[in-house]
Design a binder for these strands. Structure first.
Lengths: 336, 336
DNA sequence: GTTAGCAGTCAAACTCACAGAGTGCTAAAA
DNA sequence: TTTTAGCACTCTGTGAGTTTGACTGCTAAC
């Protein structure tokens, strides 16, 4: 589609623009980009690249900036996805070796590390419980009218919730409940906690419907509710020149303040290993000025969390994708 | 200290400035502020108020704005702390009646409600576990090398944590651990989990130091660690005119992104019911352009969480303090 | 003690001119 | 046919100079 020199020119423009945040002139490309021709020739190439939609101009006599299509081509065809230094590798490795007791913690650490290495803002979210099998449910009495339910899933996720009652319950009831729920739910997908189960339990334990009901309600609630969203390095974005525009800064705060938007963003379309959405490619129009790069942290095919970077369209895709690939590999490697 | 008319003038200026965000001119005060005199007289009063430090000017021929001292006088002496409508009371009441299973949840709801009613950004944090007595600790085996510890305190706080081991443990060991810890810790302050306890446990259970050690470490960690900080309505602040200054907006993002700063802010000096820090009164210089209003949510003298509003110095103190007082009263009333 | 009136001050908005950076085009060179 | 040099043209950003309007401070009269 594009001849070799056009590719080189496009790549040079994208990288120059990522570095400087200024429209790139034909002159700027004659140095340090391995292009053995004059600015006039580059102008001709740029003109054609603009005609085919890879470049934009901010005004008639300005230099060029990459269009969304230009960034897309760069990301798909031109970038170096091994743009990561030895120090960075060492640093990431040491961070990921931190011993954690909960899976969510690991996702948080990974997100934090990515933010530190790339200097962009990251968001992360724990695994969707609904995609997993229930391995065990434990009920523990915490007083006469309070109980804790601990749910273990097959991928090692632990969810706990407190349940309060309007009447006293005793150890014996808890034992029965423990037996009933486990009997019926062991190794079942979480959707099993539904009508049939409720009816079964109501039938078996008619005498204590006042106890069963809040339990089922609360368990459903805790399993279905969206996980907490963790945000790292929001202030780092504000150092970027694009955030000198109040419009952009405001949009950004709106985005990170709207939990639903972030959750949507992290959960949407996962065809690839690593997903890149550039500017207007995002479905939500609030995100049109930003680019998003996400990946799911998986172990043995089970999803354990999603991490995303949100930054300007002029994001350092090479660095970001390299770091994400490395961390993704590392996380999948540590099958523990 | 100030005669009646000066008070009236100061109050009018503060309120006018809170409404308009523009320096207040002598002319503006001749209408709708119950001041029966000409602008010239008001100019004289303003000039004296400025001399005594209650007012500032942005430049020689500008109107006046309140100084920190002016705001302070207003907050201490002039404001109406019952500036809350029937609708607001109804709305707040309905929100606070939501049934919750965890105390932290209630603090979050209260903070969310305050943000909704006042249109400012709120931050909240759960109770410090270290200030409480341990009522009970339960240990539950969650697999051969994993355990959960659930700690109940006297004010109803429940903290749970997962502990992982490098060796297998069995139900019998868990029972012993349950007995040991409860025997020694029941109704003790949390600081008890310290050297003497460790030594006692090591003596009693020398055979399983590999088990006791991670338990104590993890329990200490979870009890000492700062609670999660919840942020509500960060985007609302960005609608205020002071946030058109990039400097201010950047500072704000820095503040809300720095968890330690917020935790400090929420935990500092609590002489009063409701604490107001105006601009430079804040110890941290990052906060010099902002005002902070905080209160602790208590039940029977036990602290259950802290909620703060962070907004511009030109904050609607009347509304904010009225709403906080009302919510504080409501929360202390619901002794459940 | 209060007020009218006026001179003085300052910020914000507007205009204008100009320098500088960059392109597009044309015609010559390779 | 491709590349290059050169030049005219365009547009932004900046800074100086001007005007406008909102206020205050002061003085003298009420």
């Amino acid at each position: 589609m594009l001849d070799e020199r056009k590719k080189k020119v496009l790549q040079a423009i994208v990288e120059e623009y990522i570095n400087t945040a200024e429209p790139v002139s034909s002159n700027a490309l004659t140095q340090n980009h391995g292009l053995e021709c004059s600015s006039a020739t580059i102008r001709n190439e740029m003109s054609e690249l603009e005609k085919s939609g890879f470049l934009d101009k901010t005004h008639t006599s300005s230099g060029r900036i990459p269009s969304a299509k230009g960034y897309r081509y760069y990301v798909d065809e031109l970038l170096n996805d091994n743009d990561i230094s030895l120090e960075e590798i060492k640093y990431i490795s040491s961070k990921l070796e931190t011993k954690v007791n909960e899976i969510e913690e690991l996702t948080k650490i990974a997100a934090n590390t990515i933010s530190e290495v790339t200097h962009y803002t990251t968001v992360s979210i724990g695994p969707k419980a609904t995609a997993q099998l229930i391995e065990e449910i434990k009920f523990i009495l915490l007083g006469s009218r309070m109980m804790m339910a601990v749910i273990l899933t097959d991928s090692g996720l632990v969810k706990e919730t407190i349940i309060k009652f309007d009447e006293d319950i005793n150890e014996k009831q808890v034992e029965t409940i423990n037996y009933m729920f486990n009997h019926k739910l062991k190794n079942q997908p979480i959707e099993t906690i539904d009508r049939p189960l409720e009816e079964y339990l109501y039938d078996e334990m008619t005498y204590s419907i006042n106890v069963i009901k809040p339990i089922i309600e609360q368990i459903k609630k805790v399993l279905e509710e969206d996980n907490k969203i963790y945000l790292e390095g929001a202030n780092k974005s504000f150092e970027l020149p694009e955030f000198n525009s109040l419009e952009v800064a405001k949009n950004f705060v709106n985005i990170i303040d709207t939990k639903e938007l972030i959750a949507d963003m992290l959960n949407s379309g996962f065809a690839e290993d690593i997903n890149v959405y550039i500017g207007e490619e995002n479905e939500k129009k609030e995100l049109k000025d930003f680019s998003i790069v996400t990946f799911k942290h998986r172990v043995n095919g089970k999803e354990l969390g999603t991490i995303g970077i949100i930054g300007p369209k002029r994001m350092d895709y090479s660095k970001v994708i390299s770091v994400m690939k490395y961390i993704n590999k590392k996380l999948n490697g540590n099958n523990k």
